[in-house]
Simulated scan of single mutants.
Amino acid sequence: MGRIILYVVLAVLVIAVIIKFFYLLVAAVLGYWAYKQYRKNKEAGRRQTFTYVISAFVGLFLIFFLVSLSSEPANSPEQVAVVETKEEMKTQTVTTSEAAEVVVVATSKKSESADITTKENQEQNNRLPATLVEVTDGDTLKVKVDGKEEKVRLLLIDTPETVHPEKEEQPFGKDASNFVKKQVAKGNISLELDVSERDKYGRLLAYVWIGDKMLNEQLLEYGLARIAYIYPPNTKYVDQFEEIQEHARKEAKGIWSIENYVQDNGFVEPKPETTEPVVITKTPRVEEKVEVKVKEEPAVANVYYKNCDAVRAAGADPIYKGEPGYSRKLDRDGDGIGCER
């Protein structure tokens, strides 16, 4: 029984060697045959033509053997992928299919990142570089675009008037104008146009960017403007503008700090409270004039903020000139807006 097992093992080994080195074994057998033929023909004085043919086959099978070696996969079925985490570097052994999944996920993330970057680059490429000429008021300014002077109206917003020929300066109008002057002084101005580029007055309608910040949004954020003049198709940012305005309204910033000041048709300043003479008749023959004062709201208590941290803690930032608690030390640049973020 033991011999049978030994013969089986030897047979398996021989078969494995034959399969693995088949071309080499054939080349060896043909080579030995060619050698014997060469010696035999030489002794008999015959030509060696047949010997050369056999030698050619020897060379051919050697080539087949070398090709079979080079075609074997160089890598093992398992590959090592290095997974990097924020905490540490871990080396894990994963199968080829798992490694492929990792590569696909990484490629997908890179693709998404590339798409976002491409979209941002396209939006920036659609902006027109501009040079400031003059700030007219909070929602209008003059710039130079491609060497041509243009009057620009900020899209989707309206600020209180400061230079209107038929209206007096409105509350927070000067604040809005000063804020715009301060922002555009930083330079790097660009204009993003919507679908319709001009209004009926020939002004450019634009979202004005100062670097990577939009001036339209900032005015709404600080309560220096309201959403207005929503005329399709120029509605690209109207949804996010409404969210920003609602936040400023809830915090009673700027224009939202005056009750009923912001109306659908613009800004309506409350009329000052006055005293009115009232005639009271005591008798048919005697009349007296009595002054009755209209009920006034209680005066605002003195408010004092030690520093801007105190202003922010009270939720009053930014604080504007004329508001309770405003002081010059909170407004270092003197533009009327203290504790700006």
Rank of each mutant, 00 (worst) to 15 (best):
K109Y: 11
K200G: 03
L66P: 05
P270F: 08
Y23R: 09
T136W: 12
N188Q: 02
L24G: 00
S71M: 12
N234W: 07
L154G: 01
K40R: 15
E84H: 14
V82A: 12
I227L: 09
N307I: 07
E276D: 15
D333W: 07
A74N: 14
L10W: 15
L330V: 01
V238A: 11
T117W: 15
R203S: 04
F57G: 04
T162W: 07
I116E: 11
Q48C: 11
I255T: 03
S71H: 12
A130P: 07
L141C: 11
V104W: 12
E197P: 05
G202I: 09
I189V: 08
R198C: 09
V29S: 14
V184I: 12
A176I: 00
L205E: 05
K293I: 15
N178T: 04
V311G: 00
P324G: 04
K182L: 04
R47P: 02
I18S: 12
V133K: 03
L155V: 07
N41E: 15
G338S: 02
I230K: 05
V286I: 13
S97H: 09
V286Y: 05
Q37A: 11
L224D: 01
G173N: 08
Q183I: 13
F65V: 10
T49Y: 13
V303P: 04
E197N: 10
I244S: 03
K148M: 11
F65Q: 04
Y326K: 04
L30A: 07
E259Y: 06
N41C: 13
L141T: 03
V208K: 05
E78A: 13
S327W: 04
E161R: 01
G202H: 04
K20H: 06
I210L: 12
Y237L: 08
E150R: 02
V311F: 01
T274E: 10
A228F: 10
L62I: 02
T281Y: 14
I157H: 06
G334L: 01
E246V: 15
V143R: 02
R312P: 11
V195I: 12
V300I: 14
I54C: 00
A44S: 14
A301F: 00
G211M: 02
I230T: 03
G334W: 06
G173S: 08
L25R: 09
E297M: 01
W33E: 09
Y305K: 01
E123V: 13
Y326F: 00
F57S: 06
V14H: 06
K236D: 08
E78Q: 12
K119G: 15
Q92H: 15
R127I: 06
P298T: 02
I337V: 02
